[in-house]
Amino acid sequence: MCTRVVWPDADGAVIVGRNMDYHRDLGTNLWKLPRGVQRDDGVDGALTWRARYGSIVATAFDMISVDGVNEAGFAGHVLWLAESSYGEHDPARPALSQAVWLQYFLDNFATVADAVQWIESNRVQVVQLADPATGEVPTIHLALDDASGDSAIIEYIDGEVEVHHSPEYRVMTNSPKYGEQLALLTQIDGFGGDRPLPGTTLATDRFARAAHYVRRLPRPASQLEAIASMFSVIRNAAQPFRLPDEGRPDASQTIWQVVADLTRLRYVFESTTRPNIVWVDLADVDFAEDSPQQSLDLGSRLAVEGGLAGNVSGYFEERGDLHFLSLTDLRGYASGGAAAPARPS
């Protein structure tokens, strides 16, 4: 599920793109989250914080941040990794639920280096949450990038966190785990090997193609060219509409794509099933502590012919606060105390 690519030398700007590949609609909306919002870990409430930075995020079912950028030009991207194994929750260690994992970093950090230092200093755990409507339990890893061009891949393997931190780590897909992906890349012509550039939708093949094409992009003359160039790379790594492979939600079609300019703070969203591209210029958004949480309902605004397109920075509306799924929610659903949320058909 998904491909993420960083282009750190786009004529003075850092551009990042990602595909969201999944076997069903995720009910994705964009949210504007201001500074000062109080949040907790979604596990036992031991870890709490107030957001230092405002952010624009893309959600799944309005319960989890799966992609986003904050006002400091720090961004994060959730992707599928079947090999993820988070270990048994140790209450003595700080923990974050999968739903709020990305949001913690968007709320608190301006650089990848600071985020990595926090991870390594605190031995933070990640706690899995089942989708309350389907019972599906995600296995995910996380990419972080910032306006300096720095990059990190965060994975949990056999209960232990593995951090791959370097500006050279520009591409990320799915299986196998990241260190093995890097080793496989050395077999490809141009990266130390003699195998031709592969063309299938396998994660390893998408990794090779994205790594190949991002380093061959011409210098853009404008932000428009830079964003278009990144779209050309992630579209090459996209997966066509297809029946998903049995038992492999990561082997699925691309349902939406995002390109973000981390230097000039523009966040561009494209659905593969709806006609228009929209973007948010963070400079036009009020992230002040007393400003409301707001969302852009992509399901209704993009689905109609001739619907919303272009700069949508002023189209966010108040629809209540974003509520991240927590262990408490799941216990409530299991006990019958609350109804599991509906899913798009």
Results as ranks from 00 to 15, higher is better:
5 V>A: 14
7 W>S: 01
8 P>L: 10
9 D>N: 15
14 V>K: 05
20 M>F: 13
22 Y>W: 15
22 Y>I: 11
22 Y>C: 07
23 H>P: 04
24 R>A: 14
26 L>R: 09
27 G>R: 09
27 G>Y: 10
29 N>Q: 04
29 N>L: 03
31 W>G: 00
39 R>D: 06
39 R>H: 14
40 D>Q: 12
41 D>P: 11
43 V>G: 08
49 W>V: 11
51 A>K: 09
54 G>T: 14
59 T>A: 07
64 I>A: 15
68 G>S: 11
69 V>M: 15
71 E>K: 06
72 A>S: 15
77 H>G: 05
77 H>L: 03
80 W>Q: 09
82 A>H: 09
84 S>K: 03
88 E>A: 10
90 D>E: 06
94 P>E: 05
98 Q>V: 05
100 V>T: 07
104 Y>W: 15
105 F>R: 04
110 A>F: 06
110 A>C: 07
111 T>V: 15
113 A>C: 05
113 A>P: 01
115 A>G: 07
115 A>K: 08
115 A>N: 07
117 Q>I: 09
120 E>V: 12
136 E>G: 12
139 T>C: 11
145 D>L: 06
148 S>C: 02
149 G>K: 06
153 I>R: 13
153 I>W: 06
154 I>F: 08
156 Y>M: 07
160 E>S: 05
165 H>M: 00
167 P>E: 04
170 R>E: 07
170 R>F: 04
172 M>V: 12
173 T>K: 03
174 N>I: 07
175 S>N: 14
176 P>E: 03
178 Y>A: 01
181 Q>G: 05
181 Q>R: 11
189 D>A: 13
189 D>F: 05
191 F>I: 10
194 D>R: 00
199 G>Q: 09
199 G>F: 12
201 T>G: 02
201 T>F: 13
201 T>M: 06
205 D>S: 15
205 D>E: 15
207 F>C: 02
207 F>Y: 15
209 R>P: 01
210 A>N: 07
212 H>P: 03
218 P>D: 04
218 P>A: 01
219 R>K: 11
221 A>C: 00
225 E>D: 14
227 I>V: 14
227 I>N: 00
228 A>S: 08
229 S>K: 00
232 S>T: 04
235 R>A: 02
239 Q>Y: 04
241 F>A: 02
244 P>L: 02
251 A>S: 03
252 S>C: 02
254 T>D: 00
259 V>M: 00
259 V>H: 01
265 L>A: 01
268 V>Y: 01
274 R>N: 03
278 V>E: 03
279 W>K: 00
279 W>A: 00
281 D>C: 01
282 L>K: 00
286 D>W: 11
286 D>C: 04
294 Q>F: 02
298 L>A: 03
302 L>I: 06
302 L>K: 02
303 A>L: 05
314 G>A: 09
314 G>C: 05
318 E>G: 01
320 G>Q: 06
329 D>V: 12
331 R>C: 04
336 G>N: 14
338 A>G: 10
340 A>K: 11
341 P>N: 12
